[in-house]
Design a protein around this nucleic acid. Structure first.
Length: 798
DNA sequence: GAGTTTGAAACT
DNA sequence: CAGTTTCAAACTC
């Protein structure tokens, strides 16, 4: 080519660039993008325009962050952030409500609407922005769920967190892929990366870390990921936590929740499960099941699809996900592009995993390329990411499936719960402690594998949060933080509660399996053989479950029914009710005298009842003949004990704490937590039946508390027999997550009848935490959850 | 950790 | 519904 030709070409390119710039500025979808390089160059101009905008100034003023290049900043905001930002702040309510609807939407919207985004940014309020945000949040949630595949889950978890994740992801990862549709995409990598990069600085700045990196990225890097990852800001932790909280808290929309939590939960998605998963995850970044959690959610749901899609995308350069791009990508796409495309695709395919996948892909790039400094940033983070990636890449489907994202989350929790120290470790390592400082912090672990990656992504999110906080969203921010604390506290207890089975012949598809019976998937800690109780085999699990339920509709209902009138945990009430609890079916003990855990009544911490056919009943909680007080009717005594017990509880800041203490006193206590897990009742199950097991982790929490209160009152105080296995799950979780409504909600479950009987029904309606109140009410939780957003009224209402 | 006991779950 | 078998947890050593 002669120089002349070159010049001409350059001219052409410049023109095209200008066109692009204009289009970008306008937010038009169609942008002519050629090569990444050009894009890089191009980025500057458009940005400059924005720099001067009042909005950008506003941002600059608001946040301590000082964009290395202000120009970038605005742009990033336009493309990425603002579309997504709203989502973050859109209170959980919004997310919960709208998530399902918009999940896919944001992909489209974001890309197409730079303007839109900008407008949104300008107007924090814009509904559209909120919606998009929601959409983003959805994705984030999902992804988050996978990571969390931690906790959500406190499962679940595990909703809100996803929002944050989503947000971050959209900002960081999504933006590149999603922003502009069509041509944008082709070129986008460069630009997007640029934009994303620009965005990153903001986040990093927030953390005070990586301006340099940002710049580096800006200059040349196609690899957004490294930077982003590298950005390991303190905020990450916060975000993660927040996300977790959000996730868990916002069970509101069942669908959204389901999506967010992931398919896993549908069948069993129990809170307890999540908890377990979380624990596992934290412990195991490497472990297949637990560790995978972060990755897993999607895998479980669509492992095969993912891989296939990914391969397809890579080989074909085709974007499987139509939503992502209208136009094909540029012919000369870099691998990154492909990867991102793929990731994007994944996103469409499986939302939750996206984040992780994204990370993985990026990481992949990084690995391929010279090790990016970014990675170094936080060893822990990196390690985590790698771990995630490894499983993701190498691990076959099964391994991935093992842990749904949520599951991972839960595992993390569990781990944390098990070993609070461990959790702390993680948190400390990442420097996340900001929020976690509280002693309860334990929980945070969820972060470990999945979370960290998420966290990194979240950084942008945080920055945005900060900005918005300034905009009267601060309250929301605080709320998130608060939730984080709460959540974490719970986690420990919950995590411990995780059930572990040792099934060898039942394939964990029979009620012999505690995990299955509890409505949770088996996790790493389980020593089961030929286990089918995993997200991978979701269909099988569901089918089996249905079958069992067809025989016995109450098969998965809590074995111990408590009809406590409980009062609010806060417990001022004298009414703290005694809880009357009984075993659903009664025991049939003949040799144990109902004094050992062989006896389900005893195990459940309840006395034997008329329903029992036991012989020589000596149940410490109450004999069949009623000689011992127990639960059912002897309110007076019970109340006293109960009150005392509750007092102790009340003193404790959170239920978790309670659990902790209880656990300490009585190790067994922990166990129950797992069962909670029913984060979600089996999807298809009729509400009436399914409701009982508190489906959502949140629910479980609430319910658990209720149960807890009831039980605690009755049996525990003095002699702690074994903690009721059944109820533990519920107990562990409690927390604020359960809105009263939920509790009150319906008593569709068979149990309800009993509950109603309880003496003190007076429900004071403490704001949140009434879980304790009505064990029975839980049954209808499912419905309630749907209708009610987990997040109370926090509504930030910007 | 292996073996025994126990009672629920599953089967007939 | 009752009897038997299977199963895995709980328990013991």
């Amino acid at each position: 080519m002669s120089t002349k030709e070159r010049e001409e070409d350059e001219k052409v390119s410049l023109e095209s660039e200008n066109v692009e710039k204009k289009s970008e500025v306008k937010g038009s979808v169609v942008v002519i993008m050629d090569t990444p390089e050009r894009n890089k160059n191009q980025i500057a101009t458009p940005i400059s325009k924005f720099e001067e905008s009042p909005f950008s100034n506003f941002l600059n003023n608001l946040s301590p962050i000082k964009p290395v290049k202000s120009a970038h900043f605005p742009q990033s905001l336009n493309t990425l952030s603002f579309g997504s930002i709203p989502s973050v702040f859109t209170s959980p309510h919004v997310s919960s409500v709208r998530e399902s609807r918009f999940l896919r939407r944001h992909l489209l919207s974001d890309p197409s609407k730079p303007e839109f985004a900008s407008d949104d940014s300008a107007k924090a309020d814009a509904d559209e922005g909120m919606l998009d945000g929601v959409n983003n949040s959805n994705d984030a949630k999902e992804s988050f769920g996978s990571e969390i595949s931690v906790v959500e889950a406190l499962a679940t978890p595990s909703h809100g967190s996803k929002l944050a994740v989503e947000l971050s992801r959209t900002l960081n990862y999504d933006s590149p892929s999603t922003l502009p549709t069509g041509n944008m995409r082709g070129k986008s990598l460069a630009e997007f990366t640029g934009s994303s990069v620009t965005y990153i600085p903001l986040v990093q700045d927030m953390s005070g870390k990586g301006l340099v990196r940002c710049e580096v990225n800006m200059e040349g890097t196609n690899e957004i990921d490294p930077n982003k990852e590298a950005s390991g800001c303190d905020w990450e932790n916060l975000i993660c936590d927040a996300t977790d909280l959000l996730i868990f808290d916002s069970p509101g929309d069942p669908e959204a929740f389901t999506k967010a939590t992931g398919p896993h939960f549908r069948p069993f998605g129990f809170v307890s499960k999540e908890m377990q998963n979380m624990q596992g995850s934290s412990q195991v970044s490497t472990s297949e099941c637990g560790g995978d959690g972060s990755e897993t959610e999607n895998p479980s749901t669509q492992p095969a699809d993912e891989t296939q899609v990914k391969e397809y995308a890579e080989t074909q350069n085709v974007k499987p996900d139509s939503s992502l791009t209208n136009d094909g990508m540029g012919a000369g796409q870099s691998e990154k592009t492909d990867n991102e495309m793929v990731s994007t695709l994944y996103r469409g395919m499986r939302r939750r995993c996206l984040v992780f996948e994204m990370v993985g892909s990026r990481r992949k790039h990084v690995d391929e390329g010279s090790g990016s400094s970014a990675v170094q940033d936080t060893d822990g983070n990196l390690a985590c990411n790698e771990k995630q990636l490894v499983p993701y890449k190498t691990v076959n489907e099964s391994s991935r499936c093992i842990l749904p994202g949520i599951g991972l989350h839960l595992n993390a929790l569990a781990a944390s719960s098990k070993d609070g120290k461990v959790v702390k470790h993680e948190t400390s390592a990442s420097g996340k402690q900001l929020l976690i400082t509280s002693g309860s912090a334990v929980s945070h672990h969820p972060s470990v594998t999945g979370q960290e990656s998420l966290k990194k992504e979240a950084c942008p999110f945080l920055s945005l949060m900060i900005i918005f906080c300034s905009c009267n969203l601060f309250s929301l921010y605080l709320y998130v933080i608060t939730n984080c604390f709460c959540r974490r506290r719970l986690e420990p207890g919950e995590g411990e509660a995780c059930k572990r089975c040792n099934c060898k012949k039942s394939k964990c598809l029979k009620l012999y399996c505690e995990c299955f019976a509890a409505g949770v998937y088996c996790v790493e800690p389980c020593a089961c053989q030929d286990c089918f109780n995993k997200p991978i085999h979701e269909d099988t699990v569901l089918a089996t479950r249905k079958q069992i339920e067809s025989r016995n509709p109450l098969a998965f209902a809590p074995k111990v029914i408590r009809s406590a009138d409980s009062v609010s945990e806060t417990g001022d009430d004298s009414s703290k009710t005694p809880a009357s609890a009984r075993h659903k079916r009664g025991c049939n003990c003949k040799k144990s005298g109902c004094l050992k855990k062989y006896c389900e009544c005893y195990q459940g911490g309840v006395g034997c009842s008329i329903n029992c056919r036991c012989e020589g009943c000596k149940n410490a909680f109450g004999r069949k003949d009623g000689s011992v007080f127990i639960g059912t009717d002897g309110d007076a005594e019970e109340e006293e004990t109960t009150e005392a017990f509750e007092k102790s509880i009340v003193d404790r800041t959170s239920h978790k704490n309670i659990l902790h203490s209880d656990v300490e006193q009585n190790p067994d206590f922990i166990v129950p937590a797992t069962p909670l897990a029913f984060r979600r009742p089996p999807m298809q199950l009729p509400l009436s039946l399914k409701n009982k097991p508190p489906r959502s982790s949140f629910l479980c929490i609430g319910s658990s508390s209720g149960l807890f209160a009831g039980q605690g009152v009755v049996g525990r105080p003095d002699f702690f027999p074994p903690q009721p296995k059944f109820e533990k799950p519920f107990e562990s979780i409690q927390e604020d997550e359960m809105p009263e409504i939920l509790q009150q909600g319906g008593t569709s479950s068979p149990i309800s009848g009993i509950k109603t009987a309880s003496p003190n029904r007076k429900r004071v309606s403490p704001p949140h935490c009434d879980f304790a109140n009505s064990p029975g009410r839980r049954s209808s939780r499912k419905l309630i959850l749907q209708s009610i957003p987990s997040f109370p009224s926090l509504t930030p209402n910007p």
